[in-house]
Design a protein around this nucleic acid. Sequence first.
DNA 1: TATGAATGAGCTTTCATTCAT
DNA 2: TATGAATGAAAGCTCATTCAT
Lengths: 213, 213, 213, 213
Amino acid sequence: MGGVSKLLFKSLNIDPEKEDRIVNAALKVFSQNGYQKASTNAIVKEAKISKGLLFHYFKSKKDLYLSLSEQLSDLFLEKIYERVDWEESDIFCVLRQIVLLKFELFKVYPEMTDFLNAVYQETDSEVAGEINRKKEKLIAESFRKLFANIDVNKFKESVDVQKSIKIIHWTFEGMGRRNQERYKEVPVDQLDKEEILSEIDAYIHILKQSFYK
Amino acid sequence: MGGVSKLLFKSLNIDPEKEDRIVNAALKVFSQNGYQKASTNAIVKEAKISKGLLFHYFKSKKDLYLSLSEQLSDLFLEKIYERVDWEESDIFCVLRQIVLLKFELFKVYPEMTDFLNAVYQETDSEVAGEINRKKEKLIAESFRKLFANIDVNKFKESVDVQKSIKIIHWTFEGMGRRNQERYKEVPVDQLDKEEILSEIDAYIHILKQSFYK
Amino acid sequence: MGGVSKLLFKSLNIDPEKEDRIVNAALKVFSQNGYQKASTNAIVKEAKISKGLLFHYFKSKKDLYLSLSEQLSDLFLEKIYERVDWEESDIFCVLRQIVLLKFELFKVYPEMTDFLNAVYQETDSEVAGEINRKKEKLIAESFRKLFANIDVNKFKESVDVQKSIKIIHWTFEGMGRRNQERYKEVPVDQLDKEEILSEIDAYIHILKQSFYK
Amino acid sequence: MGGVSKLLFKSLNIDPEKEDRIVNAALKVFSQNGYQKASTNAIVKEAKISKGLLFHYFKSKKDLYLSLSEQLSDLFLEKIYERVDWEESDIFCVLRQIVLLKFELFKVYPEMTDFLNAVYQETDSEVAGEINRKKEKLIAESFRKLFANIDVNKFKESVDVQKSIKIIHWTFEGMGRRNQERYKEVPVDQLDKEEILSEIDAYIHILKQSFYK
DNA sequence: TATGAATGAGCTTTCATTCAT
DNA sequence: TATGAATGAAAGCTCATTCAT
């Protein structure tokens, strides 16, 4: 890891190794405890910095949390955007690529992935509002990007394309949640990627039969 | 509401009217704040009882939270079980019935519904584990019940029935989440039930076309 | 002292001896340090109670400070009101009585007096506003009371009575401040009351010559 | 303003424009918050200098505060001294001149005046002692100067001159405090100088009648 | 001169829980 | 059953001051 954080807060001219410690400590403590229960004490202890320094860089716990969420969401999206082939006109191909990419990112940046998962489930009223606003914008944007080049003609004339796409989307979400649940305890590098992919392909097969000409 | 709580903790033989106050206060405070941020002070104030009494009935905040979750989950399931026609062999009919029933329950017991929704999104490490274990058991059980009488012969021979059922399930989940999001701010009694049902029926139509003979 | 505090917060049914400790600790710490610098830590340590208890009785440091100010101002006024002969029509007699009374109160309740002096000099923006509002009301009220029975006919026709009264008032204030300054370090019971009074009488003599017929 | 500060700390040979920024920032922050609550962070931010630089010039917050008080008190006195006609033998003429001058200084240097007012009301134990010692010295000195040329023969033989002068002094102080209170919210340039002066003259008239032959 | 990162003790306040009554 | 006084650890955050550069 490491590579994640080093670029995050270059605006604060801070010793990169120390930034790394702070970011990783925060990721760890926030993902394990959620926003409210995560204690700045735990973060500074883990990061081996003083109380004051944390609040020198981030004006509040909320600021730290939201900054991290934002920076990491952006980083995550960036990584996805730059490697997905957006010219592809088959929605299943695009979604399959994204699944693969999340896989890769999860391998390389497990803390980031854990943290972002926690962020998007956060319910604490102090931050959930802001998080949700960003989440919606992000989803809307990726949807636009995702379907910009989709070839609608591949769908049967008899089906409602919008609704079909919703079903496809929910199916991919469902598979994602299910795998996360299923492999929660499995270390990243022992995940059987092939097995997971072959299951996804099975679902893709069913959905194509249902909705494609 | 009232009707919900009166039967919940008969083992403690509390004055039913007081139990009612406690349960409603706890539901309100927990759903508005989440487990961690909810304060026992706020609960006793709302319930107009003393601090000591709360801890006389429930040995800790965690106990109160988990007891409530358990009792209300059970109550919820009970209500569903007793009114769904489990002899029905068409999975869509059963799911449609459940959607309708949730609707009814939401109207009659809005606090309970809010609370249970909050419970199943709770991420606090102190309770999430226990909650998740129960949730899984509950889902597994209802799945068994749900599919006990399903007539598999209605499905096309060419499709994988298990996977099709998953897709159906995820689609219903997806619709549920979407509606919740969409009608978050709308008071229960102003929801346009017909509109929602007609959308559900449209999805059922698509899924039937895809998976049924 | 003790006698001061025992009646202050009877609404909180608190052990009177403990209330006494809290009130005296707060008076001491607040008068020695001013509002801002006074630390609740110092107060609870001095009062030998736990941190939590202070905030059980008073919802904030500000609440504690303002409650004390209010209760003690009232107590102070009460003591003055009940012992000054308000039927007296000579303004100098009334003012002389008040000076004497302050003297007595200062002897009996030195902490209270110190505290109230500190309160009415407080400049901290968090409390000064509220304090000033009360101070003005209090001054207005005592002025009304003070001059209700004053016989204006005692004044020379040639002088502006309102302005004369102002001068008298400022002179008494000035003497008060001066004596406070002068005897700051002198223990209460060693103050030479006769000396102070004879000086006051000298001033009264001058003012009478100036303004009375 | 500007003009005030440029000469204050030449011993430190700072860039005058920077000194200006520091002095004005400190005046602003100290007068708005009092000694204790004023934060050096706020000062350096307002002055657009670094934390370290402030502590390079002033060895502590206390040093900064006391230096400013001292320099500005001196400056204030200097301005008064150089423009009052100390040959004048009528005490009322001299006092009237001083009132007018304070008026002028308040117009030209509002921050300085605010700051000095705040300084002489400061109660914080860390600085109040030192401030008071200076204040007393200053008052004693100005008294000496003030009464050096006063013609005692103007007073009636029958009155105690020392005490009369005290009354005069307290009356001027009282008027000052009252006007400050009364015109607290009024911008400097909208003060009705004539009105204030005519009131002062009315008091002077009364006092002359009382004490002068 | 000038910077601002770094410190850590200190602050007020909250909280679940206990216990004498 | 029922009360609410009492606890004290822990929370987020501030602050004057120092120091390597």
